[in-house]
Amino acid sequence: MNTMSNKINTDKAPKPMGLYPHARKVGNLLFLSGVGPRAAGSGSEEANIPGLKYDKNGNYEAFDFEAQCRSVFDNVKVILEESGSSWDKIVDVTTFLTDMKRDFKTYNRVYAEYFKDNQPCRTTVEVNALPSPISIELKCIASID
């Protein structure tokens, strides 16, 4: 983990796709940058996105949105823990989906599993695209001691 002042980065989560930290501590709050489902330590390569596989023509060969949801939640958990916080300290979640009609029902079901006990405030919006061929991204705020 690398902490410069109040910026936090970890090699246990996907690399940021730009010049920004995984998280930033301000007072007793931890603000996470948008987190996607890519594998820990990976860049934007499509091969590093769980549940997504393309054929040689660039068409979906396999698409598993639930796998992307679970991977996003796992990535958020790692960043929280590396930052000195935890899953149960999340107070706000903003979720970006690229296809609300196709994916919201699955997202809501998986979300209910992960947030059964801790029920933070939540906003879910549909976006036209995300910076890599992912279908979900989370931005979270958590408390930190």
Rank of each mutant, 00 (worst) to 15 (best):
G51Q: 04
S143N: 09
D99Y: 07
G43S: 14
L29P: 12
L130S: 07
E126W: 09
V76P: 13
K15Y: 00
L52P: 14
D88I: 07
N57T: 06
E81W: 00
M4G: 15
C69Y: 01
L138Q: 14
F96W: 09
L80T: 03
S44A: 11
E66L: 01
V35A: 05
V110L: 02
E66A: 08
S143M: 14
E126S: 14
R38S: 06
I8Y: 06
G41V: 01
R70Y: 03
P133N: 07
Y107L: 04
A40D: 02
C121V: 10
G18D: 09
D92M: 15
C140I: 11
A47M: 04
R24W: 13
A62K: 09
S83M: 13
E45R: 13
F96M: 15
C140Y: 02
M4I: 06
V125E: 15
I134F: 02
R70M: 13
S83D: 01
I134K: 08
P14W: 10
P50Q: 01
T123S: 09
G34A: 11
Y20N: 12
A112P: 08
W87M: 09
K116Q: 01
L130T: 09
A39V: 10
N75S: 03
D64T: 07
F115K: 00
V127R: 06
G41T: 02
A142D: 13
T98V: 02
A142W: 10
L30H: 05
E126V: 08
G84A: 12
F63R: 02
L97Y: 13
T98R: 05
E113P: 01
D64H: 12
A39N: 06
V78W: 03
Y60P: 03
I144V: 14
R122Q: 15
K7Y: 14
P21E: 04
Y111S: 02
K116R: 04
L97K: 11
K15E: 11
S44H: 08
V76G: 07
T95Y: 11
K89N: 15
D74S: 05
N128S: 10
S143D: 12
G43F: 08
S143R: 13
K56Q: 15
K15T: 14
A112R: 11
V127E: 03
K12L: 02
I90H: 01
K77G: 02
R109M: 06
I141M: 11
V35P: 09
K12N: 10
E45F: 03
F73Y: 08
D92G: 15
F104E: 10
T10R: 12
E45I: 08
Y60F: 11
P131K: 02
E137M: 15
V91Q: 14
V127M: 07
F63Y: 12
Y54D: 05
M4N: 06
S83P: 10
E113A: 01
N57L: 05
A13T: 03
K77Y: 03
P133Y: 10
S85C: 10
N75P: 13
A62C: 03
A142C: 14
L138P: 09
G27Y: 11
S86Y: 09
G43Y: 07
